[in-house]
Design a protein around this nucleic acid. Structure first.
Lengths: 110, 110
DNA sequence: GGCGTAATGTTAGTGATACTAACTATATAT
DNA sequence: ATATATAGTTAGTATCACTAACATTACGCC
């Protein structure tokens, strides 16, 4: 085997930790992005405390994942960059969406 | 027009109510399935109170939907333009994918 | 009208807990 | 050994998701 298999994270905390590390963030940096204390992060990742919904949503956005994955580990259709792109697209105006599609077509062609 | 257009539900409570009604349940029946008081349901649907995660998961299961939809109205399945964009993105090189994400971020920000 | 009843809305109060702050622990480097 | 960076632990508190009880609305029936 050339690559180490990622053990699938079993708990909410483990999933948060795995994704945070994959994004190369310290608990401190993560805490700042979320506007919570660092100790909250530590408690989440050790499953000592849960998260209020608002923070769950922020976590999902920042770590480019879905609530479903965070909460129950279900790997939905989109994850990571693909999910990020989709969310950005949805945040765009109709006009900007056209721009994006156009750009995508140009890039994909080459 | 043969069918009335469903207005997209704007709040968590509205989405829960819409799905419950679509499943032809009264608040009482719904409460029993969830093992919570009926008044909890009433409060959820009028956005007077939120839900603990355990109940959110039960709600999603019983109403056959996802946490993402309940919480933020996010629909997991792609259609039309979204699907097209996704296919184009996947057709891109790693480099071009970065470009596309960057473009999306710029557009979405404005 | 008046009465029953089915469905939902509202309010008060409380137990559970998601947080913050402060302290502790561990590892790495110089 | 000392400093620094990162993460774990604990105590205490403010918040809020619930239950129970009461209020309202809507409808049918006589």
């Amino acid at each position: 085997m050339a690559s180490k298999k990622q053990s699938p994270s079993e708990t909410v905390g483990a999933r948060i930790r795995a994704l945070r590390l994959a994004a190369n963030m310290t608990q401190d940096e993560f805490a700042e992005k979320l506007n919570v204390s660092r100790s909250a992060i530590a408690q989440w990742e050790t499953d000592r405390a849960g998260q209020i919904r608002e923070n769950m949503e922020k976590i999902a956005k920042i770590l480019n994942t879905s609530l479903g994955y965070l909460v129950s580990g279900e790997t939905g259709s989109l994850q990571g960059d693909e999910l990020a792109l989709m969310r950005l697209y949805r945040a765009c105006s109709a006009e900007d969406r056209k721009m994006l599609l156009l750009t995508a077509r140009r890039l994909a062609r080459s």
